[in-house]
Simulated scan of single mutants.
Amino acid sequence: MQDVAKQAVREYVENHSRQDLLSSVLDEELPRYAEALERLGK
């Protein structure tokens, strides 16, 4: 049972850490390329 709990916690931390990292990168980099992305979207 402990192994199952450890695995669940490990997966939770890995998934949320990646999401947090991705969110922070996007928050920092998207504004830099906002104009180019806007033009590409047209």
Rank of each mutant, 00 (worst) to 15 (best):
D3R: 00
D27L: 06
E35P: 02
E11N: 14
G41W: 06
V4R: 00
A36S: 12
S17P: 05
Y33T: 00
E38F: 09
N15T: 12
L26C: 06
Y12T: 11
V25L: 12
R10S: 11
A8G: 07
L22H: 09
Y33L: 01
V25K: 04
R32A: 04
L22T: 14
A36V: 11
K6I: 05
Y33Q: 01
R10Q: 10
V25M: 07
G41V: 10
V13Q: 07
L30V: 05
E35H: 07
S24N: 15
L40P: 01
E14Q: 14
K6V: 03
V4D: 03
L22F: 09
M1N: 15
Q2W: 01
Q19L: 15
E11P: 02
P31R: 06
D3Q: 09
L30T: 00
H16C: 14
M1H: 15
E38N: 12
E29T: 02
Y12P: 04
V9P: 00
S24I: 08
D27S: 10
N15A: 14
K6T: 02
R32I: 03
D3G: 07
P31W: 01
S24R: 15
L26E: 02
A36T: 13
S23V: 15
L37Q: 08
R10W: 06
A36H: 11
E28V: 06
E38Q: 14
L37S: 09
V4E: 04
E38T: 13
L26T: 00
E38I: 08
E38W: 08
A5F: 06
V13C: 07
E28R: 11
H16Y: 15
P31T: 01
R18L: 13
G41M: 11
L40H: 07
Q7E: 11
Q19D: 14
V4W: 02
Q19C: 12
E14N: 14
L21E: 14
K6D: 00
L22A: 13
P31L: 02
E29M: 05
M1Q: 14
L30F: 04
N15W: 10
K6R: 15
S24Y: 07
V9Y: 01
E29Q: 07
S24D: 15
V25D: 03
L22G: 06
Q2P: 04
D20T: 13
E35A: 08
G41E: 13
L21D: 10
L40C: 07
A8E: 08
V25P: 00
L22N: 10
M1Y: 10
K42T: 09
G41A: 09
L30S: 02
G41Q: 11
D20V: 11
A34N: 04
A5K: 01
A5S: 13
E38S: 12
E14V: 13
L22E: 13
R18S: 12
L22Q: 13
K6A: 03
V25S: 04
L22I: 15
G41C: 10
H16W: 15
R32S: 05
R10V: 06
N15S: 12
V4C: 05
A34M: 06
R32L: 05
S24V: 09
L21S: 10
Y12S: 11
K42S: 10
E29F: 04
K6Y: 00
S24F: 06
D27I: 04
V9S: 02
A36P: 03
D27N: 13
V13G: 05
L37E: 09
